[in-house]
C-alpha cells in the first residue's frame, strides 16, 4: 500500500475494533429479531426448526385489536408523561436555579426517585394505591372523601401509572435542565437584565432558546425510554384492568412468554422500533429544515 493510502486507512483501522463490537452487540440481536419476525416460532423449537411465514406476523398484527389497543395506550401514556415531565422538570429547574440556602439539599432530594430500582418503585406505588390500606385512600378517608379505585378502574389505572412515572422520571429532566441552565453564558443573562428583560422575559427569550438543544435531546431520550417502560407497570397493574394499562412492551413480553409466539413478539418489537426510528428521524429532519431556512434567510439578507 502507498503511504498516502495507508494514511487514509489509519482512522478506519482505529475504528475497526469498536465497529466490530457494535456489529456483534447491536446489529446481531436486531438482525436476529428481524429474522425471527418472519417466522412462526414457538419457544420450544430451535430457530432453525421454525417455519417461515413471510410478512404474515406483521399483517395479522395490523388487524389485531389488542395490539392496536396496546399501541394506543402506549402513545397516550408516552405523550402525557413526556410532556408533563418536561414541563415540570424544566419548570423546577428554572425555579431552583439560584443560590439560596437549602437549594442544594432540595436538589439532592429531587433526584432520589431516580435512584430507586424500578421494581421497588412499582411495589411502593402499589402499596400506596392499595384500595383500603394505601396512603392515598387512607388520606381521602381521613378527609371524609370517597376512596378512589386507583388501580382497579380502567381510567384511574392509566392515570395512576402516569402519576408514578412522572414521580420517577421528572428528576431526570430536572437535573439535565438544571445542568443546561447552569452552563448558560452568565454575562448574556446579565446583558438581558440590563436590556430590561423581566425574569419571565429572560426565561422566554434567553434561557429556553439557549437550553433548547439540550432539552430536545433530553425529551427524545425520555420519549424513547417511556416507550419501553415495563417493570413498574408490570408490578403495579400487569396491564389491567382489561387492557387499560397494557403498554406495548408489556404486550410483547406477554406474547412471548404467555402466548408463546416469538415471531409475533419480534414483529411487535419491530413496529415499536419503527415508531422510535420515525420519531428520531422527524427530529433530525426538523433540525435540518430549521438550519437550512436560517441559512437561506441569511443568504438573502447578505445578497440584498
Amino acid at each position: 500500500m502507498t503511504s498516502a493510502g495507508m494514511k487514509r486507512m489509519t482512522p478506519y483501522m482505529f475504528l475497526a475494533p469498536a465497529a466490530a463490537i457494535m456489529a456483534v452487540g447491536l446489529l446481531y440481536p436486531i438482525g436476529y429479531m428481524v429474522y425471527a419476525s418472519f417466522l412462526d416460532w414457538n419457544p420450544s423449537q430451535l430457530i432453525s426448526e421454525a417455519e417461515g411465514v413471510g410478512l404474515r406476523n406483521y399483517a395479522s398484527l395490523l388487524g389485531d385489536a389488542s395490539f392496536l389497543e396496546s399501541t394506543a395506550v402506549t402513545l397516550k401514556f408516552s405523550t402525557i408523561v413526556v410532556v408533563t415531565e418536561m414541563v415540570v422538570g424544566v419548570g423546577l429547574a428554572l425555579l431552583l436555579d439560584r443560590n439560596i440556602r437549602g437549594v442544594s439539599v432540595l436538589r439532592t432530594i429531587f433526584i432520589l426517585p431516580m435512584m430507586i430500582a424500578p421494581i421497588v418503585v412499582g411495589l411502593m406505588w402499589r402499596y400506596m394505591y392499595h384500595p383500603s390500606v394505601g396512603i392515598f385512600n387512607q388520606t381521602l378517608k381521613g378527609w371524609g372523601l370517597e376512596p378512589v379505585p386507583w388501580l382497579s378502574d380502567a381510567d384511574w389505572a392509566l392515570a395512576s401509572i402516569i402519576i408514578a412515572d412522572i414521580w420517577q422520571w421528572t428528576p431526570f429532566i430536572f437535573i439535565l435542565a438544571l445542568a443546561a441552565l447552569q452552563s448558560l453564558p452568565r454575562s448574556a443573562l446579565e446583558a438581558a437584565r440590563i436590556d430590561g428583560a423581566s425574569g419571565w422575559q429572560q426565561i422566554v427569550h434567553i434561557k429556553l432558546p439557549l437550553m433548547m438543544p439540550v432539552l430536545v435531546v433530553t425529551g427524545l431520550l425520555r420519549l424513547i425510554d417511556s416507550f419501553k417502560v415495563l417493570e413498574v407497570i408490570l408490578v403495579m397493574t400487569n396491564g389491567g384492568p382489561g387492557l387499560s394499562t397494557e403498554i406495548l412492551s408489556l404486550r410483547i413480553a406477554r406474547t412471548a412468554s404467555e402466548f408463546r409466539e416469538l415471531g409475533v413478539a419480534a414483529a411487535m418489537s419491530n413496529y415499536l422500533l419503527l415508531i422510535l426510528l420515525a420519531l428520531t428521524v422527524i427530529m433530525f429532519v426538523y433540525n435540518k429544515v430549521v438550519d437550512a431556512r436560517e441559512a437561506a434567510v441569511r443568504q438573502a439578507a447578505e445578497e440584498a
Partner: peptide, 16 residues
C-alpha cells in the same frame, strides 16, 4: 438594572 436607564458593554461582549 432595567429601571436604571443604563446600557453596558461587557468585556466578553455578552451577545445573545
Amino acid at each position: 438594572p432595567k429601571d436604571r436607564d443604563i446600557a453596558m458593554v461587557f468585556q466578553d461582549y455578552a451577545l445573545y
